[in-house]
Amino acid sequence: MKRRILGGTGISVSEYALGAMMFGAWGNADPHGSVRMIHQALDAGINVVDTADVYSMGESEEIVGKALKGRRDDVVLATKGSSSMGGDPNHSGNSRRWLTRAVENSLRRLDTDHIDLYQVHRPDADTDIDETLSVLSDLVRAGKVRVIGHSTFPAEQIVEAQWTAERRGHIRFRTEQPPYSILARGVEAAVLPTAQRYGLGVLTWGPLSAGWLSGKYARPTDINLTEGSGRAALERHKFDPSVPGNARKLEALGELTKLADEAGLKLPHLAIAFVRAHPAVTSVIIGPRTSEHLEDLLASVNVELSTDVLDRIDEIVPPGTDLNRNDFYYTPPALIEASRRRR
C-alpha cells in the first residue's frame, strides 16, 4: 500500500486508514472479530487506525487498544474527543476542563501512553478556539499527544484556528477530517482548498456515503427503513427516499452504477478511488463492519480513475455539490438556535 506524509508532520501514513466506528455496539458486536479485522488491515499495509471516544461510548477505543498489543509502535493511532459522553453538559465540548479529562480517558481505554493524532470531533461554539488550542498544546508538550487535528470544521474556522495558533504561540492543528464522497462534494469548494493552503493533512471519512455507494442500494425498494440497529437505527432519515436530498442521491446512484459497470469496476471501488484522487486528500478512512467487507475494500487499493471517468462523475454530481446537505454532519448553531439570530 502506498504511503503519504501527513500534513508536513513527517509521519508516513497509508493511503487507506481503518475507521473503527463500527467496532462495538454501533456495528460489529463481536469484539474478538473486530480485533481480527484490525489485524487483517494492518497485515494488508494499513498503518492508521482512527477511532473516537464516543464510538460505542468507549468500547471502540477499548477494542483498538486490545488489537494493538505488540504492534503499537508500527501504528499511527488517531482518536477524537468533544462529543457528549454523558448527560452532564460539561462531559463534552472543546474546553480545557473536558479535553484534559477526555484525553486521559482515551489513553486509559486505548491502553497506551500517547496518542499519535488527537482530533477535536466537531467545532464548539461555546468555547473560544484559543482555549482549545491552549489545552491541546499543553497535552502535546506533556507527551500525551503527538499531533493535533480537527474534524468536520468549516473553512472559516480552519482559518481562525490557524491564525489563533500563530498569534497566541500555540501548537497548530495539522490535520482536518471531513466527510467526502461522490454524493457529498461540498468540501471541494472551500474546506479542501483551505486545508491545502495551510498544509494540513486530510483524512476523509464516509467515502461510501453511509452505504449509499456500497452497491447495496439502487432503487427506493432496496432501502429497508426498519433494518439496522444502534447508530444506523438513529439515522434512518438519511435513507428515507421521500427526503428530497435522498431522492437526488438515488437518481445519481443509478447513473454512477452504470458508469462503474462501463468502467469495469465495482461501485464502492469507483467511489473510494474518486476520493483518493483529490490532491488534497492524504488518506481515505474506510469503516468496514465485517471481514468480508474489509477484504473487498482493500481490493480497490490500486484502482486509478481515468480523466474520462472523473469528467463523467462531474457531470453526474457537479463539483462542490452536497446532494443532501445533512450529510455534512455539522450545522452551525446559528442555523439551529433561534436565539442566536434574534435580539
Rank of each mutant, 00 (worst) to 15 (best):
I63F: 03
I63P: 00
K66A: 15
K66I: 15
K66G: 09
A67K: 10
L68I: 13
K69E: 12
K69V: 15
G70H: 01
G70M: 10
R71A: 07
R72P: 02
R72S: 06
R72Y: 12
D74Y: 10
D74V: 15
V75Y: 01
V76D: 02
V76L: 00
V76N: 01
L77T: 13
L77S: 11
A78S: 09
T79A: 06
T79L: 06
T79H: 02
K80I: 01
K80M: 03
G81V: 05
S82A: 02
S83H: 15
S83A: 15
S83V: 15
S84H: 14
S84Q: 14
S84A: 12
G86P: 07
G87N: 10
D88T: 11
P89T: 04
P89K: 05
N90Q: 02
S92D: 04
G93Y: 02
G93K: 04
N94G: 03
N94V: 03
W98A: 01
T100Y: 07
R101W: 11
V103N: 04
V103L: 10
V103C: 09
S106I: 06
L107S: 01
L107A: 05
R108L: 11
R108Q: 13
R108K: 12
R109K: 15
D111W: 15
D111G: 09
D111A: 13
